[in-house]
Design a protein around this nucleic acid. Structure first.
Lengths: 352, 352
DNA sequence: AATGGCACTCTCGATTTGAGAGTGCCATGA
DNA sequence: TCATGGCACTCTCAAATCGAGAGTGCCATT
């Protein structure tokens, strides 16, 4: 059932105020706002109703009201006013972006740091492959007489390599052959498609270097698995300690303990695939410990069969309007940068 | 001037007790210990002297005594009893080590996590190159018609690579030539030795592919700089919140804000090059914010021109004996593992 | 239906109080 | 001369008390 306009107005005012002050808000302070043409008594009545409808909560009799999760949900979905970035903001945002992104280094972590800095909250950045990853190309390079380098180019345009010491004498010719066999039989296969059947076929035709096949396969599978996984970078957790809701150390500790990369990795499971920016309010998502917490996240374009996502974790009470605005702006420009500069995609980060 | 045996005994008892309980310790509780054949009054006198000598401090008149930094220093240098690892401990330590280290992936971060888990404190792991890093070998691999892969093998045995799109048509022959030139002129040079003179020489002899030289050089320099840098991994910061000294959020926040990778990177500067395990007590080191904090660190062998270091950050009040013992044991076995299994050294971690 | 008024509730900070822990020092005794 | 028992004194900490302030719910009035 729809809320009356007046109720909406009041609910919005309450959430706004609570977001600013982190204090329960009372009828009087609402009535005192310009633009509120009702007496505090009227507002009290409305607030009582909003409470019984589940949009507000009362920490105790005779304290002000606090938005409930449902209240927040309604707020972000319908009530929230758009936040317009000021010129200053867009400028400093652009600057930061330009400055950091020129740099080499692990892009995904740079992005994460930037978002955290920008919002003054913990932030994360994720790069995950769209669809299944396969190997596009193998190269075996003789390094020294007793070792060679295995280089794998994946469908996500990532290059991974490994220095392998030879267990036996193998000539450059033998490696060439093996390389050809690999490229013929093992490319374009996803990790699930690498069956024992495929394996034995390769081994049979690999010639003198057949003994290397298991090592190579192991590494290949590892690379594919790793590439298939999302690359998660989380930073700025400490910023939560600045928020009034985490002045209690044990609460803070509990939250910070669950707030790790692994937890973030589960987030994509809950998001709906169509919407761009998404807000998860409190108990809506996975971990119990996050019940006073919200997550704002948005996608960005990253190219090369990869998908990017950035997000911010904060108290349910955070400034959704502002955060959402900044995040979307950031994501947009990030997409532009990736398109324009042909930056190395984060998938090229390697761990071996 | 030397302390009397009795003073040492008392000081040791006080530090031991304070480490266990985090409470100021009074004369009575010391006197009550078995093995203390003096009355509380005697101990009071001794404590008064120890205090005026600077080894103890009093939070306020009529509280117990607390070790001062000087007191800790003396304790770790002379008084501390060796902690013997129990069979159980060595076993679970070995197990954890075996289990984690089999795994591929970024070794340095695995080590860090393990140490943190093992000590229940924030821990870090660092891999830094011994001496100057240079390039050992270049390879240029034609990938597709319009791009190639640049592979660099450094003196730290790290393999780094980058997919480079060709700005113009270049034949495989041209790349071969360029590769030969690079290997002839640019190997074994440290980053400082890559002068503009060297550059122009290379460019002159590079043939049709000369236009690629700047890109390659840029990447090379970047790789060398990155390899020259220590690779730092820090984890488990949140564990500090479990310690009684950080129940005050603002203190905790302050500390956690300074405790980042960058801070850790400065640690090696303060350690003396000869000793293996080292303990930094409170104000002895860099940052003001760390004054109630200690660091225990130790080296480990990592091979391939790299040096490893692991360390633990904790309250000054931490159990030095235990931590030191575990850390050294860990470091030893780590060294053994690196030697034995020929694990990929952490320097092979790559970020591009 | 909106409002002014009022009694009632609950929290929070300030203040008080007493118990407990610990000290410093002195007089005593080996 | 050094260790010890005793004692008065200090300081903290937790619990108890108290009053102000904020906010509510409801009722009578407009």
């Amino acid at each position: 059932m729809e809320l009356s306009e007046r109720k909406k107005k009041i609910l919005r005012a309450i959430v706004d105020s609570y977001i600013r002050t982190a204090e329960p808000v009372g009828s009087k302070s609402i009535a005192a706002m310009p633009d509120m043409n009702f007496s505090s008594a009227t507002i009290r009545n409305e607030m009582a109703e909003l409470t019984s409808m589940g949009y507000l909560e009362q920490p105790h009799t005779s304290a002000g009201r606090v938005p409930s999760p449902a209240g927040y949900r309604l707020y972000v979905d319908e009530l929230m006013r758009n936040y317009r970035l000021s010129i200053d903001e867009t400028q400093s945002l652009n600057q930061a972006l330009e400055a950091k992104m020129q740099d080499f280094g692990d892009v995904i972590s740079q992005v994460g740091k930037l978002v955290s800095q920008l919002t003054n909250l913990p932030a994360y950045a994720v790069a995950s492959p769209q669809g299944k990853v396969s190997v596009k190309r193998f190269d075996l390079i003789m390094a020294e007489s007793n070792s060679f380098i295995l280089v794998i180019l994946t469908s996500t345009e990532a290059v991974q390599n490994k220095l392998i010491r030879l267990p036996l004498e193998v000539s450059e010719q033998d490696l060439k052959l093996l390389s050809a066999v690999l490229n013929a039989s093992l490319t374009d296969l996803t990790v699930d498609e690498i069956t024992s059947e495929v394996l034995s076929r390769i081994t049979r035709s690999a010639g003198p270097a057949a003994s290397l096949v298991p090592i190579i396969i192991e590494f290949t599978v590892h690379v594919l698995q790793e590439q298939q996984h999302s690359d998660v970078y989380l930073t700025g957790q400490v910023k939560l300690l600045g928020q009034p809701e985490y002045q209690d150390v044990s609460k803070a500790k509990q939250l910070l303990s669950t707030l790790d990369e692994e937890m973030i990795a589960h987030l994509p499971e809950v998001i709906s695939p169509d919407s761009k920016t998404q807000i998860l309010v409190g108990p809506e998502h996975i971990a119990q410990e996050l019940k006073d917490t919200s997550v704002v996240m948005t996608r960005f374009d990253i190219g090369d069969g990869m998908q990017g996502m950035i997000g911010v974790v904060g108290p349910t009470r955070m400034d959704y309007a502002q955060i959402t605005a900044r995040l979307s702006y950031f994501a947009e420009n990030l997409g532009r940068l990736f398109g324009k500069h042909e930056l190395p995609p984060p998938s090229q980060k390697e761990e071996e």
